[in-house]
Amino acid sequence: MVNTVLDKVPAKYRDTALIRLFGLTKVPLLFWLRPKVIELSDKRCSILIPLNRRTKNHLNSMYFGVLACGADAAGGLSAMKHIMQSGKKVSLAFKEFNAKFLKRAEGDVLFNCEQGEEISAFVEKVLASDERQNMPVKIIATCPSIDEHEPVAEFELVLSLKKKS
């Protein structure tokens, strides 16, 4: 019954509810930031975090800690999608985090991860092994209301997965 109802809800609303529920139960800061899933497909994950009183700094641009949360959410949600599709239990963590802040994010920020297919193959590799595996994941952040093509930040996170016994 629940799956029948969920199948009738548009994917972006269902995915937004999923990430917010995850935030509410596991990472309260993520819930507080109110991320919105724009796209979650086998190829791409796009998450929008609004620039508002909760997310801005003293310069009226997005606080760099919020930018870090957005990158974590975009890479993590993409991996969670593929893990959930596998039906197996996998431990997910980020091992490294590198960021380049290119310009001030003075509007809502869109975080894009374009490595969905690579992450899917990586999950399959992890499931075939008993070892922890690592993969670099790239996230590009833009402010679509200002310039949808010019990045405000670039992130590289090392996704670390291990099949649970």
Rank of each mutant, 00 (worst) to 15 (best):
L51F: 11
V152Y: 01
D7C: 11
H58V: 10
N112F: 06
N3G: 09
I47E: 12
A153K: 09
V2M: 13
F155M: 03
I139H: 02
C69F: 12
S120K: 08
G76E: 12
I146T: 01
L110D: 01
P35E: 15
D15F: 05
A68C: 14
N52K: 13
D130Q: 15
L110H: 02
L67E: 10
G23L: 15
C143G: 00
D42S: 05
A121W: 03
M84W: 14
H82T: 09
E39W: 06
S160A: 02
S41R: 12
I146V: 10
K43S: 14
S129W: 10
G87Y: 11
N52D: 15
K81H: 05
R104Y: 07
A121M: 03
D42E: 05
A153V: 00
A79L: 11
L67R: 13
C69A: 15
A74C: 13
L24H: 09
E156H: 13
K56Y: 13
K89R: 03
A17K: 07
K12F: 05
I47K: 12
N112T: 04
D147I: 01
F101D: 02
N134I: 09
I19T: 13
M135L: 12
R44G: 06
M135C: 08
Q85P: 04
A68G: 14
R104S: 07
L92G: 08
G87C: 13
G23K: 15
V66N: 01
V109C: 00
N112S: 01
V2P: 00
L67N: 12
I49N: 07
R132V: 05
M62G: 02
K26A: 11
S165Q: 15
L51I: 11
A105P: 00
C45I: 03
N52L: 13
M135V: 06
F94T: 04
F155G: 02
A121S: 07
E154L: 00
S165W: 15
V5N: 07
R34S: 14
M80Y: 01
E96W: 13
A73Q: 06
H149D: 06
S145F: 00
A128S: 08
V158S: 08
C45F: 01
D108N: 05
R20M: 06
K163C: 04
N134W: 09
D147F: 00
L6P: 06
R14P: 04
P35W: 09
I49K: 08
P28T: 14
S91C: 06
L24Y: 07
L24F: 08
K43E: 15
S165K: 15
P50T: 14
V109M: 03
